[in-house]
């Protein structure tokens, strides 16, 4: 059954759209990532123009993250203090990121720099995560009784202005989450992604937060980022397609249910392995696209009428 999307100006099969929404809701509630990395290419593949795909999936992420965040909050897995600090850093970072993006864009060839750095970044994070989680998985199997340390302390944790994050069982310098929020906000603005992908591994490995706490906390701050993007895109580019968003949101509810049900039966290290596999897969796909000869060397972009 086809549904006409008034802003995208195309007809797309409603069940395919529901499927995309379900996938995003699932990823979001299971891993605490926005899911835009998956939704945007899928929507473009279904014929939705790229600007509409990017802006509209940000709107869906608002809903998907809220369901996920509420579900995790009920289980006591949201660190509000940490989310606030990360968000403060993120707001500054994304504002500077948007300015930097405009500056770089006037010098041309920014796209490829972003894409290559994205592949390197994701590959690095995904590879490290996979290695670490497989190791801890194997170790846990071998010696299930031994007490595992909460987290490793690195020199960054010892910076001044230490703050106690009770929920996350951390006593670390406030500059660490603040700086992390800043860097992720900067990268998110530059790469056009929500940043959950970078934020979640960084919260686990750099901040040393428990995996269960990371997902809810990441979702909470993604809500604010996505609300900001949705409103900015609506005003400046008019590319948020409400019809598309409603269908995606409906699918997202189903996906969030499935994700939450599976999530309660998974242990922290299992979640980390799955997330690592997805990160590596996305990275491999991007790298593959970069190096293989495209089916057609030409691409068309219809410039939106003013």
């Amino acid at each position: 059954m086809q549904i006409y999307l008034p802003i995208a100006e195309v007809s797309v099969d409603i069940f395919l759209l529901l499927g995309v929404g379900t996938a995003v809701g699932f990823l979001s509630s299971l891993f605490g990532v926005g899911g835009g990395f998956l939704a945007t290419p899928l929507l473009i593949f279904l014929g939705v123009p790229p600007p509409v795909a990017v802006a509209t999936q940000a709107n869906q992420i608002v809903g998907a993250s809220l369901s996920g965040a509420i579900a995790h909050w009920r289980r006591g897995n949201v660190d509000f203090v940490m989310a606030g600090v990360l968000l403060a850093g993120g707001l500054v970072g994304s504002t500077i990121g948007v300015l930097l993006f405009k500056l770089l864009k006037t010098h041309g060839q920014i796209d490829v720099v972003i894409l290559v750095s994205y592949v390197v970044f994701l590959g690095g994070i995904g590879g490290l995560m996979l290695w670490e989680s497989i190791r801890s998985f194997v170790r846990l199997r071998r010696e299930p009784a031994s007490r595992v340390k909460l987290h490793q302390h690195i020199w960054l944790h010892g910076l001044p202005l230490k703050v106690r994050f009770r929920k996350s069982k951390l006593y670390i310098s406030v500059f660490l989450p603040l700086g992390l929020g800043f860097v992720v906000g900067l990268l998110a603005a530059l790469m056009g992604v929500g940043g959950g992908f970078i934020m979640v591994p960084a919260m686990i490995y750099i901040l040393g937060m428990p995996t269960a706490m990371v997902i809810g906390t990441s979702l909470l701050q993604i809500i604010f980022v996505a609300v900001n993007v949705t409103i900015l895109q609506s005003i400046s580019t008019h590319t948020v397609d409400l019809m598309l968003a409603v269908v995606l949101l409906a699918g997202g509810m189903l996906g969030a249910r499935i994700g939450a049900r599976i999530g309660t039966n998974l242990r922290g290290e299992q979640v980390r392995i799955l997330l690592a596999l997805i990160v590596v897969a996305v990275c491999a796909n991007l790298a593959f696209e970069l190096v293989t000869r495209p089916a057609t060397p030409y691409t068309l972009q219809v410039v939106a009428a003013p």
């Binding site: 809701g25 509630s29 709107n59 869906q60 608002v62 809903g63 998907a64 993250s65 809220l66 369901s67 509420i70 579900a71 009920r74 609300v227 949705t230 409103i231 900015l232 895109q233 609506s234 005003i235 008019h238 948020v240 409400l242 968003a245 409603v246 949101l249 409906a250 997202g252 509810m253 969030a256 249910r257 939450a260």
Partner: peptide, 25 residues
């Protein structure tokens, strides 16, 4: 009404997210 439209879009998304969370319980 671009600004209002954006706010409505966010409101719908928040509503859907909240409904989804009720379902999750």
């Amino acid at each position: 009404n671009a600004a209002l439209y954006g706010l409505v879009a966010v409101a719908i998304a928040l509503m859907a997210g909240w409904l989804g969370a009720i379902g999750l319980r």
